[in-house]
Design a binder for these strands. Structure first.
Length: 571
RNA sequence: GUCUCAGUAGCUCAGCUGGAUAGAGCACACGCCUUCUAAGCGUGCGGUCGGGGGUUCGAAUCCCUCCUGGGACGCCA
């Protein structure tokens, strides 16, 4: 039941010249329960209706009749609407109990495909806290779109090609050996990479050798490619461990190298469309008319660039997936880059240019200092996750020593803390990483939400143990008046908002909407929990409250899943 | 220099497409486990919404301008 729409269309019939949709758009949910459950500010209706807002609200107050509405009030130009709480409770609780793990879902995306390019770490470099953002934001967008009926394609656009592999090969041949790399994996590759840069400062010819090796790779030299494939394998194996821990999956691991043989036709097309021009030996697309610097497509040595590759990948994806939306999750340092090649697609005449979306997020620093793989100023995600899990384990040992599978719970909560920490504020915000806030489990955190979820499970298991099974499917037996406390109603109102929030998160491409919603719902529930004892002897009250607990449980679980967190029954 | 993003409580952040006294969490002080997990709940403290103009019945929100900070700006990705 969509109350905004339902009541808006009722109001629209009472006013001349307004569509239900316009009215619904004006309506809001007042923060103060004194001001009703729904409110219509009448100020904007004033001019077209040639009446004062107060008068409009007064008239609507008397004219508006609906089976869902208890009464209305006209206050200072606002029409404040109070719903019939018992009906509201019954309708909503029934809906949630019936839809279960589909509560909050919609079919908006039915028949459409969304391609999401995210995570995309660089081969041979450790997966660190900055990659985490792209990974968890991308994964959340994937889950949210899928929940709304879209077919999703998650692509890990690995950084698996480029001169850095020439450097790595040189470093490996000079200072590395098979045993050390097999044993040390990415750590050893990173060590070689760092060593290369140190040595290259003394001996610039190393860079020439590196370029030569990369050229060999591009020409298909087997000895070069064999080493390269090995480095890629080692890296992916290590990334997979992290993805498993994070619960993230991809539909394709098509990295940069995948497009090596697909770029030439694109260059030809640019030329034939008169978009490419030569400048100082390089080839570029001029974008002066759009206030942007030109987009370089070919270096003067004829090799391709970032733009060429992304453009080629987009063409490939357009043909392969026929997407309704193609989303790129990267930090905002790449804003201009995406604007540029999006514009190039448009200039090439492809209608899907406006389906490309850059989902930019803020940069990560560590205690004020920027991250640098070369300088070693990184926090490896694996270390962070292990610390979070370890800390969780200690807390569980102290508070719930009888828990059967402590390790699993610690993993779910520790990882949840890290993910939630990254998703809880608007993605555009910069993050200054601190161990304190990443390992904080109190207040607005993932563990708080998970704890609340476990609490709902705990209440239920105790209820079953004490009073035996209860079939909520027969909700006609429930006594809705027992959900009339202010705390219960606040919970119901939050539950109701879930559908809107999921949609909003999708439209804004903003997972933090869900994260914040879960905090709001958990807070409302915890207040209810403290104010209203659930497992009372009185059957009617107990069962009505248990029904509410069940709704909170379902909604928290659904919401946690959307942002990639597990919902442990007991922690 | 040009373009762009951000600036809300001591700190981290919400604030939907302009709406009713600007909301949370952390920190700090105090209170609450002889009933459902205290990773919890309550009370208190704390804001000239970066500054200044403007539009509007109404601006944290829209426009202009300035200040501060991040980022990008041709052969890295």
């Amino acid at each position: 039941m969509n109350y905004k729409q339902h009541i808006a269309s009722k109001i629209a019939t009472l006013l001349t010249g307004f569509e239900a949709q316009e009215i619904a758009a004006l309506m809001e949910y007042p923060s103060d329960p004194e001001k009703g459950d729904l409110s219509l500010p009448c100020f904007r209706l004033s001019k077209p209706l040639r009446k004062s807002p107060q008068l409009i609200a007064d008239e609507l107050k008397f004219a508006l009749q609906d089976e869902e509405i208890d009464y209305s009030e006209s206050v200072a130009g606002y029409l404040n609407i109070f719903l019939k709480k018992e009906r509201f409770a019954k309708t909503l609780v029934s809906e949630i109990l019936t839809t279960g793990d589909r509560y909050g879902s919609q079919e908006i995306g039915q028949g459409s495909t969304v391609v999401i390019d995210f995570s995309s770490p660089n081969i041979a470099k450790p997966f660190h806290v900055a990659h985490l953002r792209s990974t968890v934001i991308g994964n959340a967008l994937y889950q949210i779109h899928a929940f709304l009926g879209y077919k999703c394609v998650g692509i890990n656009h690995l950084g698996d090609w480029g001169t850095q592999f020439g450097r790595l090969i040189v470093a490996y041949q000079l200072w590395g050996n098979e045993e050390a790399v097999t044993k040390g994996a990415i750590d050893e590759l990173l060590h070689l990479y760092v060593k290369f840069h140190e040595e290259a400062e003394q001996d610039p010819t190393l860079e020439d050798q590196a370029r030569a090796w990369f050229t060999k790779m591009e020409q298909g030299d087997e000895s070069a490619l064999t080493l390269w494939r090995w480095f890629v394998e080692i890296s992916i194996a290590e990334f997979q461990k992290i993805y498993k821990l994070l619960g993230v999956q991809f539909d394709a691991f098509t990295g940069e190298s995948f497009y090596n043989d697909k770029m030439e036709p694109i260059i030809e097309e640019l030329k034939s469309k008169q978009l490419l021009e030569e400048d100082e030996g390089a080839w570029l697309v001029r974008l002066d008319d759009y206030g942007m610097a030109p987009a370089l497509m070919l270096k003067k040595d004829g090799s391709s660039l970032y733009h060429t590759r992304d453009l080629t990948a987009a063409m490939y994806r357009a043909e392969t997936y026929d997407f309704a939306k193609a989303i790129y999750v990267t930090d905002y340092a790449q804003n201009l880059h995406f604007q540029q090649w999006f514009k190039v697609v448009e200039l090439m005449g492809y209608e899907w240019a406006d389906k490309l979306e850059h989902v930019a997020f803020g940069r990560v620093s560590i205690e004020g200092a920027s991250l640098s793989t070369r300088k070693g100023n990184v926090i490896k995600l694996e270390d962070l996750l292990q610390q979070a899990i370890q800390k969780t384990l200690e807390i569980i040992e102290a508070r719930n020593p009888d828990l059967v599978d402590k390790k699993q719970a610690a993993e779910q909560v520790g990882v949840g803390a890290v993910i939630f920490n990254d998703l809880s504020s608007n993605r555009i915000k910069d993050i200054d990483f601190s161990w304190d806030s990443a390992l904080n489990f109190e207040g607005e955190t993932g563990p708080y939400v998970q704890y609340t979820y476990a609490r709902t499970c705990s209440v239920w298991s105790k209820a079953l143990a004490t009073y035996g099974p209860l079939n909520l499917a027969n909700e006609h037996d429930l006594e809705w008046t027992h959900l009339a406390s202010t705390e219960a109603i606040e919970v119901l109102k939050q539950l109701y908002l879930f559908i809107e929030r999921v949609e909003q998160a999708m439209l804004k491409l903003e997972p933090s909407v869900i994260a914040r919603y879960l905090i709001d719902l958990a807070q409302a529930f915890n207040r209810f929990y403290h104010a209203c004892y659930i497992l009372l002897e009185e059957k009617q009250i107990r069962e009505a409250r248990l029904a509410l607990v069940s709704c909170v449980q379902t909604t928290l679980r659904n919401g946690l899943k959307l942002i990639g967190l597990q919902a442990p029954d007991e922690i």
